[in-house]
């Protein structure tokens, strides 16, 4: 019991902006550096080493950014929902700030996934955009991110913005499966008009390694950017707090 309370208080100590601010300041350069190294390695493998695809030629190489971006777009939304739960359960202000700091990155990856998908679709399917189930769900995910950010920026009171944003993130995450399946069924109803994705051909090992490296790079990049953004949010919100003035940052 005593250890439990101890670890709890330790957890909450890092949930306090005053403790987290310098920690984040120390950590983010490391994450950024690791992201850069991984991205370089991933790109080198993806663009130079991985073999040309038998059916798609070199245009498939876009997956080295497309697939990690698509993964991140969904994963970041899940992480936001997780922080939303923390916001409600523990009333920690930092979790709400993390949620807010992650949203633009999530939206960016969603946009990249859509954009690179379109770039790949043109040579492969002959169209920039097809109303494929996955593409359409991804588009709606982008709308969810935009709605979250629009609401956050429209509310001046930070407590209300945090709580309202957390509620929107939770409602969104509950609805994502419903949206995904309905879009899938919609797709089968309109079979004639759409192009179904062919099964992914068995992937060369180099391709897989390159993709995983890029995914890790995106991951590290997201953490670094979120930490930088959360530091900015802390400065903005705690500008009157004594600890920040002592740190000489405000």
């Amino acid at each position: 019991m005593a250890t439990l309370t101890a670890s709890r208080s330790r957890f909450f100590r890092y949930a306090s902006p005053a403790t987290f601010y310098p920690l984040a300041g120390r950590l983010w350069p490391w994450f950024a550096a690791v992201a850069a190294v991984l991205a370089l390695a991933g790109l080198a493998i993806g663009l130079l080493i991985a073999p040309t695809d038998a059916t798609q030629g070199d245009s498939y190489r876009i997956i080295f950014i497309h697939v990690p971006a698509a993964w991140m777009s969904m994963f970041i939304y899940l992480v936001m929902a997780f922080y939303a739960v923390l916001t409600f359960v523990f009333q920690t202000r930092l979790s709400a700030m993390m949620m807010r700091a992650l949203a633009p990155t999530g939206a960016m990856f969603t946009f990249i996934a859509l954009w690179t998908g379109a770039l790949w679709g043109k040579p492969t399917w002959g169209a920039w955009w097809v109303w494929d189930a996955r593409l359409t769900s991804e588009l709606i995910l982008l709308f969810l991110y935009l709605g979250f950010m629009a609401l956050q920026s429209a509310i001046d009171d930070t407590r209300r913005a945090d709580r309202a944003g957390a509620l929107v993130a939770l409602v969104g995450v509950v609805n994502v499966p419903i949206i995904y399946f309905s879009v899938k069924w919609w797709n089968t109803l309109h079979q004639g008009a759409s192009v179904s994705l062919t099964r992914a051909p068995s992937m060369a090992r180099e391709m897989l390694i390159g993709m995983l490296l890029m995914a890790l790079a995106c991951w590290m990049y997201s953490i670094a950017v979120a930490l930088v953004r959360v530091r900015a949010l802390i400065v903005e919100r705690e500008r009157d707090a004594a600890w920040l003035r002592e740190a000489g940052e405000a």
């Binding site: 709606i140 709308f143 969810l144 935009l146 709605g147 629009a150 609401l151 429209a154 929107v168 409602v171 969104g172 609805n175 419903i178 949206i179 399946f181 309905s182 879009v183």
Partner: peptide, 12 residues
């Protein structure tokens, strides 16, 4: 704001 928030959820 309401349409931006709600319309994506109304897709299903």
């Amino acid at each position: 704001l309401v349409p931006v928030l709600v319309l994506p959820l109304e897709v299903p």
